[in-house]
Design a protein around this nucleic acid. Structure first.
Length: 567
RNA sequence: UGUCCUGUAGUGUAAUUGGCAACACGUCUGACUCUGGAUCAGAAGAGUUCAGGUUCGAGCCCUGACAGGACAACCA
């Protein structure tokens, strides 16, 4: 309850973006009859990544906040690049993120008929014409950003002829590239997109939804704004690179003679993350070249990858809220994302015992065959998470790093003669240890315990400097732990425009640790369940995990202050 | 040499023109703790790209530079 109040206060305090200001103003001005409608328009040509999350949160978020609705619309105007495979994953990921389009699942291909009719209408009004020239020729006539274009010789083609040709284009009488339909606007416009843009081209590849019904397909610019119009979208939110398309967007809307309402395109900055490749093409290359195990490899910035890594939808939404929406091309720091994950997981993940690099400890004065269950809390910050019992016995494992033969000054863990508390159990004292003389590796530590110091008992008040996590050797379960790190590191490849990004691949981005020891209760943990291995980091049960072979993915490590002291 | 967009601590974002620019992350200090490397307390760090102008007063308005980005796919 208190949390809710705090949260509401925070939200009220949160600054609103310029986009939200536009929307609020439009509403206040009574535009579109006080209605608000948005849409999330992915092209089904790849998996959604965290960059899309930013758009999804805005599209659905603004609609919800202002009492409107948000449609899901697949922008499927290019059958060559699109596939049904992607549609299902996109829908799954949006739902996972926590948003719902209800029954409003639309496709640009639903509007092919209306768009075709609109194109015919433009031809009849002398605002569109069929061009027979090659792509190269059309391109060269477009001029350059600093130089006006020249008009096509087909620009003055008779309306009847245009009508006839366009119809025959769609009937399949011509091959791809033979003709295109162009809007007749202005070849001398300073805006390249207004220089008679191509609005229809011949494509003979079957479409994933309409099959071979069409031989001509609308271009993005001819489909998007009109689709917005058909769906009565009021605010069409997109990324900055479409800024220069806006005059064309408006031009088409003008031709639709809209008095009732008019959709409005507003652009915001796309998400860039440090050390993170976001380009669909490059991600696809990583998958195809086998650099990662697939689109859902936990190192991928895809939503399914992040999910498998153990990121929660809440943490991603929180991150998006933190970075905001502006018109500045920003590069956001991944550490902010990781902060959001820690913040969320810290509140919900059970603290459990797991030892990644086991070192055997024998408690010499503890009875040989005795096993006792010690009680530990599941989450110190959430009483409702309850407690559980963990078996304790004479032989246990602790982390290799938690013992040092010659400890430096501020080392508060186990060392010869030193005392530490075993979390939830007893205080132990290191009496001796065994060392492999050839490798210098510590192989075993012998300790004594103080029976009066069991946690929760009367004698437990005694203080020692350090506390270690541990697992009982006999009851511990062998697990595999996958330590994922940033796929790119050392230098930030985020700004790389060429294909050099491969040279930033981090060879240590995946370390598989076998022989890790976990407490027995974890053997039956469910896939995607999140835990915090005490003092190590946040982990998530991999979907491939089975009770006989538990597998954990590291979501994000806890920073080890000891490593800083060591420097 | 065109059009459009953008310039606020290391990073990302705030500041109805009117209190020596606020918040988050990150960094650094300390405290505490059966350990959550959480939590608590504190610190450093920008005078808002630059130059003019309007004004009693300017990140905020005007002008001009400078810098960065987008635009010349029959992609979206």
């Amino acid at each position: 309850m208190n949390d809710e109040i705090t949260r509401e206060k925070e939200e009220a305090k949160a600054p609103i973006s310029f986009i939200e200001q536009f929307i609020a103003d439009d509403l206040k001005d009574g535009k579109n009859k006080g209605r608000i409608m948005t849409r999330f328009p992915p092209e089904p040509n790849g998996y959604l990544h965290i960059g899309h999350a930013k758009a999804i949160c805005l599209d659905f978020g603004m609609a919800k906040k202002y009492g409107g609705k948000c449609n899901l619309r697949f922008d499927d105007t290019n059958p060559v690049k699109e596939d049904v495979e992607y549609i299902d994953s996109i829908k799954e990921d949006i739902h996972w993120l926590g948003f719902d389009w209800e029954n409003r699942e639309y496709y640009a291909s639903d509007y092919f008929g209306r768009l075709y009719d609109f194109a015919v209408d433009l031809i009849k009004r002398g605002l569109a014409y069929v061009d027979d020239q090659s792509a190269e020729l059309i391109s060269s006539q477009k001029g350059s950003p600093s130089q006006a274009g020249t008009e096509s010789p087909f620009r003055k083609r008779a309306i009847e002829e245009n009508l006839d040709l366009f119809e025959r284009m769609n009937k399949g009488e011509f091959e791809e590239g033979d003709h295109v339909l162009r809007a007749k606007i202005d070849m001398t416009s300073p805006n390249m997109h207004m220089r008679d843009p191509i609005i229809y081209r011949i494509i003979k590849t079957a479409h994933h939804r309409t099959g071979n019904q069409w031989n001509v397909y609308p271009m993005y610019d001819f489909a998007h704004g009109q689709s917005d119009y058909f769906e009565e979208i009021t605010h069409s939110l997109c990324t900055l690179e479409f800024e220069v398309h806006r005059p064309l967007y408006d031009w088409f809307i003008d031709q639709l003679k809209s008095d009732e309402y008019r959709p409005r395109q507003i652009e915001f900055n796309r998400l860039n993350l440090t050390y993170t490749i976001m380009s669909k093409r490059k991600l696809l290359e990583l998958v195809q070249e086998g650099k990662v195990s697939g689109w859902d490899d936990p190192r991928m910035p895809t939503l399914c990858g992040l999910r498998r890594r153990g990121y929660t939808p809440e943490s991603i939404r929180r991150f998006v809220e933190l970075i905001g929406y502006t018109k500045v091309e920003a590069i956001n720091d991944v550490s902010l994302l990781e902060h959001a994950v820690r913040e969320d997981l810290n509140a919900r993940a059970y603290r459990v015992f797991g030892v990644l690099n086991p070192l055997k400890v024998i408690i010499t004065n503890y009875p040989e065959n005795q096993v006792e269950d010690v009680e530990v809390v599941n989450n110190p910050e959430d009483e409702s998470a309850g407690k559980r019992f963990v078996p304790f016995s004479r032989e246990i494992f602790i982390e290799q790093d938690d013992f040092m033969e010659n400890p430096p000054n501020k080392f508060f863990r186990l060392a010869p003669g030193m005392e530490v508390r075993l979390k939830g159990a007893y205080i132990i004292k290191c009496e001796s240890f065994k060392k492999d003389t050839s490798t210098g590796e510590i192989t075993e530590v012998n300790c004594s315990y103080d029976p009066a110091t069991r946690s929760g008992s009367e004698g437990s008040g005694r203080k020692v400097k350090g506390t270690l996590h541990w697992v009982s050797a006999a009851q511990a379960v062998d697990a595999e732990v996958r330590l994922y790190d940033r796929l790119f590191d050392h230098e930030d490849p985020a700004g790389q425009k060429d294909d050099d990004y491969r040279k930033f691949l981090n060879p240590d981005s995946l370390k598989v640790l076998t022989g890790c020891k976990i407490e027995p209760s974890l053997a039956n943990a469910k896939p995607l369940e999140k835990f915090q291995f005490q003092r190590i980091g946040y982990f998530c049960v991999d979907p491939d995990s089975t009770p006989s072979k538990p597998v954990f993915n590291r979501t994000v490590p806890l920073k080890d202050p000891w490593s800083k002291v060591n420097k």
